[in-house]
Nucleic acid binder design. Structure first.
Length: 271
DNA sequence: CCGGACGCCTGTCGGC
DNA sequence: TGCCGACAGGCGTCCG
């Protein structure tokens, strides 16, 4: 479900409620997520003050003096801050309870998400260590992308969805960014010229920035930490629009499968 | 090293 | 109405 804009929307929603708060206890109803929630997290996090809520790619980091909780929402995860005595519903797997009587509640029906603990700097964790640059940071530029794309035969869409190349671009925003850049999703990454890669960098930045401003995209079940949907789905140019008219030309949006994922594009606007 | 396929889960939707 | 397969916003791992 959540790509960078949805994770960032979630982070902005929960951070003001968590930062500076002390954790009283961690209630784990279902430890079997993508990996088991480590027992150490439950004991280590209790009593700690949450100093900061940060994001790295699609990971949320709850930082404390003792260590960092790494939280990933997978395909169907969501977080809410509510009163701790609110009865949990189906798939509400974890409560991180706070001293003010509220809790951060993780819901994740498909359980592709993760909640892990590290005492070391989070950037050194094996899941974060090899991640590429943040797409909205300055070091993600056409020089960088050209260097990484050199000689690569993979389709550009799969390439920009590879978190070692750049983080946070999932299936929706990859299609959207390629439409904005006018690049066909199957084009070999290494065969795209410098000017077009520069366009792609800007397109990724634009799409993600606008999606964050709209509170993310709600296709089925994404909601922010207050339970509200995002609104970027109204602005989607191609994703999920196969058979519908292109908004830029007179053509029709088509779909194809790339790397087992549905991909949407306009055959007239993208080459 | 690279590219592609698999599988982890549950809910929902469309077709018969 | 009910059943059944296809599909869904991610990603680590394995294989050739």
């Amino acid at each position: 479900m959540p790509e960078l804009p949805e994770v960032e929307t979630t982070r902005r929603g929960i951070a003001p409620h968590l930062e500076g708060q002390r954790v009283t206890e961690v209630v784990v109803r279902q430890p079997r997520l993508r990996w088991p929630i480590p027992a150490e997290l439950t004991t280590a996090l209790a009593g700690q003050r949450i100093d900061a809520v940060r994001r790295r790619g699609k990971y949320l980091l709850l930082e404390t003096a003792a260590g960092t909780a790494l939280l990933h929402l997978g395909m169907s995860g969501s977080l809410r801050v509510l009163q701790a005595d609110e009865p949990p519903r189906a798939h509400d797997h974890v409560d991180i309870c706070l001293a003010d009587g509220r809790c951060l509640r993780l819901r994740d029906p498909r359980r592709f998400g993760a909640l892990l603990w590290t005492r070391r700097p989070a950037a050194e964790h094996r899941l974060l260590r090899d991640l590429g640059p943040e797409p909205l940071d300055q070091d993600f530029d056409s020089d960088y992308l050209a260097q990484r794309a050199h000689g690569r035969r993979a389709a550009i869409k799969s390439f920009i969805m590879d978190s070692r190349i750049v983080v946070g671009v999932g299936n929706i925003y990859a299609s959207e960014a390629l439409f904005l850049a006018g690049i066909h999703p199957k084009t070999a990454a290494g065969r795209i010229g410098r000017a077009r890669l520069a366009r792609l960098v800007e397109a990724i930045r634009t799409v993600l920035t606008q999606a964050i401003a709209q509170g993310g995209t709600t296709l089925r079940d994404f909601s922010d930490s207050d339970g509200r949907p995002g609104y970027f789905q109204q602005r989607l140019s191609v994703y999920g629009r196969a058979g519908e008219p292109c908004r830029r030309c007179t053509g029709t949006i088509r779909s194809l499968t790339l790397g087992q994922r549905n991909t949407y594009y306009c055959p007239r606007c993208q080459h």
